[in-house]
Structure formats: structure tokens, C-alpha cells
Design a protein around this nucleic acid. Structure first.
Lengths: 253, 253
DNA sequence: AAGTGGTCTAGACCACTAC
DNA sequence: TAGTGGTCTAGACCACTTT
């Protein structure tokens, strides 16, 4: 099976063979790969070489190993689509914060853990919010769960000058959430600007979001801008890449 | 350095130590980690254990190894921001296809390789385009490069019934690109709808985009809809996650 | 008890980079 | 030539799951 003279390392050849069989449907989602000891016999290489091959497939997110049970073909995850147009004023006045609106439309039971603190603005945050470096910012750090499973990490930062004395500094921001409170405080929102990127999670993020190996995260930064052109909130969100996709719609002209 | 009784595997402890030093700035971007043999002495573990530790950091995208040279702290990549509002009719009539508009605004020299073919619509594509399964679709598969470096893979699919006889079936679609030709053919575009996800690249994608280990890709599907509500094009794009972020803007109400 | 993946060792040789 | 990471071996024992 393995061509020692091909120049391609043995573990790559084994990985290529297994990947081909998976893509060809020879192994189906949920199926167990042959055990490492069996693969050692099949390909006539050492166990470490087999483990390196399987490690490649794991890093690709193609399979996942379960201790004591085996290595399984990863079934395609059900992907939730998060439509960004949900951030509407109508929804806010109806008493729905963004995450709760998602919960309603996707029918899951939401739960949010919140940690609130005050920080000095870093250079980067100060620039985005248009405030001075070192100025006080309110930080709301949240872990959002659906049906008990953590699915999103979000860190909002707002100028303390805006939030002081409002419910934004409380755990429960009330009906409509932070954005509704901002508008009550005179900061009518004009538009949102979101940037979307992807990277591998830190170990902390991976364990919080219960991500398997080979699963990247979507990194979203949302900036809320009021009618005076001032940025009033910057929200950094991190979502499991295998469970979420973001949907945007925009006109052609 | 390594606590054998802690329950935490040695390679995790080594990885944690190194990660902490990187994040603390003890090793700076571009710096070389101590060689594997040195780390073996430092932590008193076997070389395979060291390699496993470094492998973790590589999978996280934190470091990258260069054969014969060493393992280096990955410097933060310069991230290009792709604004999606660029898909405007004004730009199209000015003769700019979307990718070329990006090139102009970000000042790089663009190059595109195109492969054109006709396929039968899969169930999924047929559903998106609102045509029959097995109907002919024109497929334009492209590798887009900036300054000689491949940066984006894009696969467009359009109903053959629309493209037959137009320049869309040619390598060079002419000024304004595919979208301009669609409008000339009577399909005035009304809006675009994009979904954004993230996943690890296949080996093919990784080599085409020259991605290092631990680098995910952004997966964007854009659907162009005309004024009659018909989907006229579906474009699947893949971008290097360490070099791009997408920017969207939308009103607050 | 048997089978699975997880961790680890002490080596060996190769391929690439630098001097 | 010397130093680096890349590949590979033949074992060993551990932790977890299933029967």
C-alpha cells in the first residue's frame, strides 16, 4: 500500500488513502475508522506513523477521536444561520435583545452569563470608540448558551461616559438590551458595521465553546454608530465555526 | 519544570509554558524558539514529547516551523479588509469587476486564472438557483492572485439558460465583469445575499492558497438576485483566514 | 478481560539551511 | 560541517470504554 520510494512521507500517504476513502463514501459519517493497531497491519508502518496520519485528518476537522472508543468520521454539523438584519429597532422596541431574537427564531433555550467590569481603554479600543487612551470603558463579557451548550463569546466595550448610571452597567440590561438603553440615553443608533474574520481558537476559547480539534472560530467585531457619527459600542464576538454561519444582505446599487 | 504528578501530560505542560512565554512577550514575533534539542534538555523530556508540544502551538497558528532553520513566532499578518459595499452598479458601469475594484482600493497587482465548464446542477445548486436538478449550469472556477500570491478561490455557477451566447462563457467577461453582462442580458440585479462561515482547508486549498498549518479559511457564498426575485448566480469563495476580513455595514432600523 | 486511543522513551537517519 | 526540523522504529505503560 505504501510506496517507500515515492518521496512522499508514509504518514502522508496513509492520510491520503484514508481521506480518499472518506470522500468516496467508503467510510460514512459516524463510522469508525479501523483501529490504529489494524491500520499498522494494513499499511505495514509503525503505530506512531499511523497516529501522525490520523492526526492530519483530525487537524483538518475530518475525523475526531474518542478515547477508548475509536476514531470517527465527523458528521456534518447542523449549521445555524444568523441573519444580521435582526438588529432592527423594531425588534428592540419589542423587547428583544439580539441574542434572544436569535433564540426565538431558531427555537433554542437561551442562557447568558455576564461579567461586568471597568477598564482603561487600550490604544486600539480608544481609536475605535473615538475616546482618549486610558479613558474608562465599561466591559460586558458574556458567554451565551443555547440549550445548555455554550455557543458564543461576546465582549462589549462602551465609553463609561455613556453608560454611567444606566442599566447597561447592570447584569440585566432590561427589555431590548444594551441598544435600547443607549437610545433612551439619547444615542439614537444610525448603523452597525461588522467585520468578520476566522482564526484558530485559544485553548481557553476551545474549552469554553467545546470545540473539537480542527475547528476554527468566526471572529466578528461589531461597531454601533449613532446618528452623530460617534461609535458608542464595540462588540467582539467569537462563534464556533462548525456550527454557525452569518448571513448578510445588501442592495446591488 | 515539568510536574510528572500533575495529571496534565508533559507535552501539554511544555506547550503551556511556551505559550505563556510567547503571550508575555518573552519571545517576540519573528523570534526563533529554542531548538528541539535544547528544549529536550530544558524540560527533561524526549524529543517526541517536545515535538508534540510544538505541534500544538502550530495547530493554534501561534508558531510555524521552517525546515533547517527553526520554529518561529508567527508575526501578526497584515489583514486586508474587503468591504462588501464595493459591489455597486456604479463600480460595474465604470468597468470594474469586484476583484479588480479590490485591487484598485488596496493597491495590489491582480491576476486571475479562469477555468470554464458546463455541469449538471446538483440538488443543492438547483435549489439555490431555482432551476431543475440536472439542468445545465455554467461554472467559472477562478484562482485570484495579488502580486503573484494566490489569495482567493472562487467558483461561480449560473444557469446556462442565462449565460448561453454571452461573454460570461468567455475567459474575459469584459468591462464590469459577469454582473455587467447579466444586466445587459436583462437581468437587472436587485440585491446580493452573502453567508460567511469558517473551516479548515482541504490539502488542495491549503496548497493553492499557500496556507500555513493552523490557518483556517473564510468560506463565503454570495447569491445574486435580480429584480424579478430570481437567483442568477451563486459564487462560492474561499479566502485565507490569516490575511482577510470581510466588512459589512447595515442600518440600525 | 479485551480493545481502544493517549502518552512517552531512546534512539536512528534524512533533508534542509547556514556558515 | 554543524545545526535545524522531518520522518520513522519497536517497544512500553496508562486511561477509558465495552463486553
Amino acid at each position: 500500500m505504501i510506496d517507500r520510494a515515492s518521496g512522499l512521507p508514509a504518514y502522508r500517504q496513509v492520510a491520503d488513502e484514508l481521506r480518499k476513502k472518506i470522500n468516496a463514501g467508503e467510510y460514512r459519517p459516524g463510522d469508525k475508522l479501523p483501529s490504529e493497531r489494524v491500520l499498522v497491519d494494513t499499511y505495514q508502518v509503525s503505530r506512531i506513523t499511523i497516529r501522525e496520519a490520523v492526526g492530519l485528518l483530525r487537524a483538518e476537522g475530518l475525523v475526531s477521536a474518542e478515547h477508548g472508543k475509536g476514531v470517527f468520521i465527523r458528521p456534518p454539523q447542523k449549521v445555524e444561520r444568523l441573519s444580521r438584519s435582526r438588529l432592527s429597532r423594531a425588534a428592540r422596541s419589542a423587547g428583544q435583545a439580539a441574542f434572544l431574537a436569535d433564540a426565538a427564531s431558531n427555537r433554542f433555550t437561551p442562557a447568558v452569563e455576564v461579567d461586568i467590569r471597568v477598564e482603561a481603554a487600550t490604544t486600539e479600543v480608544a481609536q475605535v470608540l473615538g475616546i482618549g487612551e486610558g479613558d474608562e470603558v465599561l466591559v460586558r463579557e458574556r458567554v451565551m448558551s443555547a440549550d445548555g451548550q455554550p455557543i458564543q463569546l461576546a465582549t462589549s466595550r462602551l465609553p463609561r461616559s455613556i453608560t454611567a448610571g444606566t442599566a447597561i452597567e447592570q447584569t440585566d440590561t432590561g427589555p431590548g438590551g444594551t441598544y435600547a438603553r443607549l437610545e433612551e440615553a439619547g444615542h439614537t443608533l444610525a448603523h452597525f458595521s461588522e467585520t468578520v474574520g476566522a482564526r484558530m481558537p485559544t485553548p481557553d476559547e476551545a474549552s469554553l465553546l467545546r470545540l473539537g480539534a480542527g475547528t476554527p472560530i468566526l471572529v466578528v467585531r461589531r461597531v454601533a454608530v449613532d446618528t452623530e457619527g460617534a461609535a458608542v459600542e464595540v462588540n467582539d464576538m467569537r462563534l464556533a465555526g462548525d456550527r454557525y454561519e452569518l448571513a448578510y444582505e445588501f442592495p446591488a446599487d
